[in-house]
Design a protein around this nucleic acid. Structure first.
Length: 423
RNA sequence: GUGGGCGUAGCUCAGGUGGUUAGAGCGUCAGGUUGUGGCCCUGAAGGCCGGGGGUUCAAGUCCCCUCGCUCACCCCA
């Protein structure tokens, strides 16, 4: 047994999965940069106050934060999400609005790990600060939608809702609380507990015992102010205009307390309902002000890498890319020719591998085969003496050919580029 | 944080009711072919059976604790 392994909920992302992660972010970047979003890379560590503003009824803040006091007596935390960091950054630098940012990177939550849920987990996301326009909501939601289809995902459902103005939301929460309290004994013990902390979240219960009570609960739309209703209508119509399919889910509430107005969630059709949220977001018009900035509206989303990749696995799309060499140099002399050839070929952009430790030709050929290289270059005593190299096509039974060493690069380049054209 | 399942080789897993030196497939390495990969054959290396304690003449196997993974709940991405 090794002396160490990763801490609970932490893991190594190894090849080829690691390459898939890179590509995931690449696809996201091309999606959002096409719409003019700029990259922000906030620190992993922030003053804990940045996150406590997210809400006292939020488990993410109250129970799941990785926080500690540093050597300078500062109470800091590893970020549990990035929206608050982006807003803090906005307040600190005050870019011109509307400010459109995207990000990617790890977040930390101290919870019990399980499938699709880790203590360190990556998200990609966007935030738009400084506009109340409902078409910003449309643009943001559409970007996420485009991203999922760029990955090749077909079975993603988009649910949208509005929590109304803060007063609407407050009135609704009060109505909901009194409704649930009237039927308290019908609720599961867990939901009774949830009710005392955050009545909205009772709507999120997946327990069958609660479903009847939830089904008859009052709905948010009868509490919407005229303004909130109009914003939501424009938002929905905008989604239709750009061809993004959605369904209105008046019971959609999200875990972070800062949401106001528009909320939405992308759900994977192939995942179990308990953990089918691939990503989600909404409006958080009060957050920037809570962090000490000017009253600035915001809207954004975050998408989880792990669950989205699980959904990709289920649909058989966006596979891990295969990485292979173009050329493998087999040198059965002292390896010094391989040293030179690798250097020359690599500097010309040819992906070149070799063996070490003077292994037998058979062993080196096996390694060449495994590397996925199209061509093997063989250097033995004869080739060394005559200053030539053998080129062997590893994917056909064609005869290997001998070329002078000074023509090796040119010959290989020709072969490889003609193959590239053919594929 | 609560409950269920599971921890045996690098990986996937066998190992009725406790009983000599713990096995297989894949992978790795070497050889069969002293200059040639894939297919095939032979062999080798690789295990504190997650860790600790207990019961027993004897524990991979039974009991307790602990750590980890996993599933559900909670919560969330």
């Amino acid at each position: 047994m090794p002396d160490f392994s990763t801490s609970p909920g932490m893991r190594d992302i190894t090849a080829p999965e690691s390459l898939r992660w890179r590509r995931f972010v690449d696809v996201f970047e091309s999606t959002v940069s096409a719409a003019g979003y700029e990259l922000v890379i906030p620190p992993l560590l922030e003053d804990i106050g940045v996150f406590t503003r997210l809400g006292e009824a939020t488990d993410v803040v109250t129970k799941e934060m990785y926080d500690f006091v540093d050597k300078g007596e500062r109470h800091v935390a590893l970020r549990p999400e990035q929206t608050a960091s982006i807003c803090r950054s906005f307040v600190e630098h005050r870019p011109t609005t509307p400010f459109k940012a995207w990000y990617s990177g790890p977040n930390f939550r101290y919870e019990k790990p399980q499938r699709g849920r880790y203590r360190q987990f990556d998200q990609v996301g966007v935030e738009v600060l400084g506009s109340l326009d409902p078409y910003v909501d449309v643009e943001v939601v559409q970007l996420g939608w485009i991203f999922f289809s760029s990955l090749g995902l077909q079975q993603v459902d988009l649910a949208v809702n509005s929590l109304g103005e803060p007063e609407d939301r407050a009135a609704y929460v009060a109505a909901l609380a009194s409704y649930f309290n009237e039927r308290l004994d019908e609720l599961s013990p867990e939901s009774q507990q949830t009710l005392s902390r955050n009545p909205l979240r009772v709507l999120d219960s997946k327990r069958t015992q609660d479903q009847g009570v939830i089904a008859e609960a009052p709905l948010i739309n009868s509490f919407w102010s005229d303004g909130a209703a109009a914003h939501f209508e424009t938002f929905c119509n905008g989604l239709s205009t750009v061809g993004v399919p959605f369904s209105v889910d008046l019971k959609l509430v999200r875990g972070l307390d800062y949401y106001r107005g528009t909320t939405f969630e992308y759900r994977g059709g192939t995942l179990d309902s308990a953990q089918n949220a691939l990503g989600g977001g909404g409006r958080y018009n009060g957050l920037v002000a809570d962090l000490g900035g000017p009253d600035t509206p915001g809207v954004g989303f975050a998408i989880g890498l792990d669950r989205t990749l699980l959904a990709c696995d289920d649909e058989g799309v966006f596979p891990a890319p295969a990485q292979h060499a173009d050329v493998f140099v087999v040198d059965v002399c002292d390896g010094s020719d391989a040293l030179l050839i690798c250097s020359e070929l690599r500097s010309s952009g040819i992906r070149t591998e070799r063996s070490w430790d003077s292994r037998s030709m058979k062993a080196q050929m096996k390694a060449a085969n495994r590397s996925g290289a199209r061509f093997a270059i063989l250097i033995g005593e004869d080739e060394r003496a005559s200053n030539t190299a053998l080129i062997r096509d590893l994917r056909s039974d064609a005869e290997q050919i001998s070329v002078p060493r000074n023509e090796l690069l040119a010959t290989l380049s020709t072969y490889l580029s003609s193959l590239q054209g053919a594929e």
